[in-house]
Structures are given as structure tokens and as C-alpha cells.
């Protein structure tokens, strides 16, 4: 008998269903969606590569590139916490499903500071 009340109530209340594919979902600002790199401040320090629990992040110092395998990343945000330059961040939008495993490769324009050449000792 009690259930009749609940069922009747849901007849007259607004629908609980989010009309998802028709209306895009708005995420909360803190949602851990996918990892975004701010290329201009990255120094290719490799800390994110070492810290990543699944080995999704690869840092290529010679090729000056930072790459992430989207289908390996578990969105834990450990790289975001450990980045010393705070150039990694979590974007609330999720990676969309695909038929292939996606790898995003970003070119990093970082120039390592050149070591000062040793001052030549003046000939005695």
C-alpha cells in the first residue's frame, strides 16, 4: 500500500531523468576529468612520469615532448599534486570514448638554461 503513495507521487513530480545526450552535462568545477598540461610553464622535469601510478605519462627530453596515453590514465590527480611548477591541472570534461587507444603528444617549447662556459684561464 505504501508503494502506491510513492508511485503516485512520482507521477506528479518532475522527471528525475537528466536528458543527457540532448542536453550536455555540466560538471562540477572540482571533478577529475582529464589531465591538461600548460605547455608554456612545463620544464620537462619528469616528476609526473615517475609519480604516475600507471605509467601513462611519458616525457621525452630529447624530442621536447610530453605525452599521455588517455586510455591508461586513471585520473587520480597524483601528477597534478606533485608537479613542482603547477603546470598540470584537472579538467572536468572526460575523454570521449574511441575505437582506438588515444595518445596525446604535446610539444613543449622549454629551453633548458645554458650552462655558462667556463672562463678560460688566461695564459700565464
Amino acid at each position: 500500500m505504501k508503494m502506491t503513495y510513492v508511485a503516485l507521487k512520482s507521477l506528479f513530480s518532475s522527471p528525475a531523468t537528466a536528458n543527457y545526450p540532448a542536453e550536455p552535462k555540466t560538471y562540477y568545477p572540482g571533478t577529475r576529468g582529464h589531465i591538461v598540461l600548460e605547455v608554456s610553464t612545463c620544464t620537462l622535469c619528469k616528476i609526473c612520469e615517475i609519480r604516475c601510478p600507471t605509467g601513462a605519462i611519458q616525457v621525452d627530453r630529447e624530442g621536447k615532448a610530453w605525452s599521455i596515453e588517455r586510455m591508461k590514465c586513471i585520473q587520480c590527480g597524483f601528477c597534478v599534486d606533485s608537479c613542482p611548477r603547477k603546470c598540470l591541472s584537472n579538467d572536468p570534461q572526460y575523454t570521449s570514448p574511441a575505437s582506438e587507444k588515444i595518445t596525446d603528444r604535446l610539444d613543449v617549447p622549454y629551453e633548458p638554461p645554458k650552462r655558462k662556459p667556463k672562463p678560460e684561464t688566461p695564459p700565464a
Binding site: R70, M71, C73, P97, A98, S99, K101
Partner: peptide, 8 residues
Amino acid sequence: VDVYVPGC
């Protein structure tokens, strides 16, 4: 596998 859905 035809489609991969990422997310953890």
C-alpha cells in the same frame, strides 16, 4: 574490442 570507454 570495438569501442574503448576511458574513465576510472
